[in-house]
Design a protein around this nucleic acid. Structure first.
Lengths: 267, 267
DNA sequence: CGAGCAATTGAGTCGCATCAAGCTAGGTGG
DNA sequence: CCACCTAGCTTGATGCGACTCAATTGCTCG
């Protein structure tokens, strides 16, 4: 949301990577007001680096955990499952996300976490998270708000899966990820970003089969709207994509209007 | 048709009703540990009673609000919408729920709220909610946890809508509501509870059409599993309903401090 | 007693699942 | 250097679950 557009250097898509919690603090600051002491407290949270290979479930469904997972690089999906074996992806988490911040106050898993490509995780213990929240009310509120944003995305996800046809669902997912990856400027330029998923995973997100995802992608390609190839999303016509996905970005927008982030307690 | 079931002879299903926040405190206590001073602080939140007639949207989609809505009596749905006019219900809120506690930290609506029957709301200002959260970290954590439970339900909802057939979706919704209404004991007795929805609204929740909901309900009835009539759910075979809905109640179970776990509904 | 919802049922259609191949590209070993 | 393997992508044929349109039956209530 803060990135200005880099000049047209046409560098191939570069995946972001963070090895400390700076990016997490930036994320919180984009949504909440934190004093510098509070920011330092969050930054000081002890982390443990864990590298997860592609296609590995690193938080099993329904398990109880003792740590939150910050995504330093890579891509993670939150998945639910039904008995016949099919999976439903309920969220994608990109670098900069604390994928399961919610587990700090409710450790029993809300869903499993799977790495969709090689992924670096920074683990932060629930205890540490709750302690800093206890000590700094503004941090607690920032954490709370972060979880609410996640829930807002999830609600849109349910609407997307429940009430749109396949093509619209795919378009909506591409729109959402474009915005979240920070390529969501509304100009007519060509947008390109790395989104390392295969069609099978898009299918699990959109509640379709991979065969049908393929046909939906073909339809979007033949309309000259967008393509997904080798984990690279290329958007030719942003407006058409928004229209196809019935996408309204307001649900992604953190609430940062000045009068709303007013602190209730002086810094 | 063979409906010689006891018509109006039994004790009528009684809808719960609360005119203060006692029930909210009880709800929080079932999920979090609160000292008596903290409980009193929540109880002391000023409320404003609002009566909403059936089928009225009292929080429009996308609007910004200044109050949270506690459900004193009745039934409320959180709805999303797509352009062609069809609606997707993403949550039911029953008496005792703070339907949009999340709006305290993110006032722009996550979804509209509609009363499905005559409903009494207790409005609590965001400011008051945030102040008590700032003052009492344990209360903040309780609020946060409450929102997480809501998100956990939403995640299951997405899985339900995305990856099950119509009959299973309906069965799952009935299971969820049975547990949340507190009728979720596992004995073989007949379960009956008021759930004042029409088939159209079940359809919006399950992402089906009302015609198809009707057929799914008929199937459940003909299997002697459950019926829904005049807003009364009657469950004949709980185990079969759980099986049909692939229902696992663990996602509804609140988890409190590490040393203490409690069920959402005490047994 | 008719008006108006909600529930019900039927017939026709379509989106998507399913099954089944083939295709492509990168990797690996003989 | 080619033969093979595998993962992912693409395409076709067929069937079913759910939608749509449409008509009928209760049910409640003024």
């Amino acid at each position: 949301m803060t990135t200005s557009r880099q000049a047209a250097s046409k560098t191939p898509v570069i995946a972001p990577r963070f090895d400390n919690l700076c990016a997490f603090v930036e994320r919180l600051k984009a949504r909440s007001v934190l004093a510098s002491e509070e920011q330092r407290a969050v930054l000081a949270l002890p982390v443990q680096i864990v590298d997860v290979p592609a296609k590995q479930d690193f938080v099993p469904l329904g398990d109880e955990t003792s740590h939150c997972c910050f995504i330093a690089s890579g891509l993670v999906a939150r998945v639910g499952q039904v008995k016949n074996g099919s999976r439903q992806i309920t969220a994608f988490h990109i670098p900069g996300d604390m994928a399961d911040l919610h587990s700090a106050v409710r450790p029993v898993g809300i869903g499993g976490l799977t790495a969709l490509c090689d992924t670096r995780i920074l683990r932060v213990s629930h205890l540490a998270v709750r302690l800093v929240a206890q000590r700094y009310p503004a941090v607690a509120e920032a954490f709370w708000r972060d979880c609410i944003l996640d829930a807002a995305i999830l609600m849109q996800w349910a609407v997307n899966v429940g009430r749109k046809d396949g093509r619209s669902r795919i378009a909506h997912i591409l729109c959402e990820m474009a915005i979240r990856y920070g390529r969501g400027t509304m100009d007519d330029a060509l947008h390109e970003f790395a989104f390392p998923v295969v069609q099978e995973q898009l299918a699990d997100a959109a509640a379709l089969t991979s065969v049908h995802v393929n046909r939906c992608l073909r339809s979007l390609r033949e309309s000259n709207i967008a393509t997904v190839r080798n984990g690279i999303v290329t958007i030719f016509d942003w407006d058409a994509l928004v229209k196809a996905g019935e996408f309204d970005p307001s649900y992604l927008i953190a609430d940062t209007a000045p009068d709303r982030q007013r602190r209730l307690i002086a810094e």
